[in-house]
Design a protein around this nucleic acid. Sequence first.
DNA 1: ACCTGAACACCGTTCAAGT
DNA 2: ACCTGAACACCGTTCAAGT
Lengths: 197, 197
Amino acid sequence: MPSTPRPARTSYHHGALREALLDGARELLAEGGADSFSLSALARRLGVSTAAPYRHFADKDALVDELCGEGYREFGRALTQAASSTTDARERLDALGVAYLRFAREHPAVFGIMFTDRGPAVLASGVPTFEVLVDAVVAAQDAGALPPGADPRVLARTVWATLHGLAVLGRRGGFTKLAIDDDEARLVADALALLTR
Amino acid sequence: MPSTPRPARTSYHHGALREALLDGARELLAEGGADSFSLSALARRLGVSTAAPYRHFADKDALVDELCGEGYREFGRALTQAASSTTDARERLDALGVAYLRFAREHPAVFGIMFTDRGPAVLASGVPTFEVLVDAVVAAQDAGALPPGADPRVLARTVWATLHGLAVLGRRGGFTKLAIDDDEARLVADALALLTR
DNA sequence: ACCTGAACACCGTTCAAGT
DNA sequence: ACCTGAACACCGTTCAAGT
């Protein structure tokens, strides 16, 4: 569901091919996963030639990188919103954790692409997202829920790693096989209970 | 470097194509990563026709699944060996963590494949690996390093998620951009210091 | 039983040519 | 400036045919 309605293809020129490519790519990604996504299938769906995308993106990786950037921005918004949902510093960590796992569940293909080996440009996009966690850790330290003497970036790294591990391992039923497949809220609560005090 | 020397191709039949395919696949994977690995390139390298692999594997996924299974077995051996390296239950957790991150660093392509969406058969192969962690958690509980009342499987899940997150995020310099890129021992020590007491 | 040769549908990418 | 048509090298996979 594109945010802006695509104008119907009236003539030789598409008119808004760049946006249509990104919209269509998101749809294909959501439908068939990262593997089944091809530039050819995308062009076919949009009714343009297979060479047309190359007027708007240098190659397939450039389009995927753009999708990753969008993903990071939306991920950051979801985390920021979760962080502002409560004034309690300890509860805020839980809210961030649940938002982290929910994003991974609701956008599995984009999440998978965001965290598989992509260029350094994509990695840099992830830093602002991380800062939300650092801020929450500092607040939790002030509230006495995390060791006050420790480097907040080191603490945030550990919290981030834990949440990310839960998201990745839980994504495709990694915990189901172990008969310890709880819902997201409990997954996060159990993990953060061990990390905080 | 295959464990058994490949006999030279003397005639029409290869003789040990199945093993040669697995050895060559490991090599290609280590050289160019998971993306650049193709069955055609593998057949070319071994000097057989592009159809030859299909006498030994149903399709490309079957070969990759086999590689994942081998990866899990070697991963399990590395963790088991690390666990037996010390009698101190608390130190054992650190040893497991370092072994976890080292495996991810030394076998990046196989590690990546093991934990990306593969079939349920591959997922089941990961369970024995997890049991090593559960045993170490129980010992740590007895030693007072982890809450004695908690379900060891839930604790192990959290420890697993944390180590996995560190491995995944740290793999391609995920922490470098945050200026908190420490060595593996410190990464693990900082994280487990927060999890244990 | 194991492998080849040739073919099919599908990729990503390029480039001259069209509008 | 933006898109097409046709081409290239490369995939995964199949199948009749060879040894």
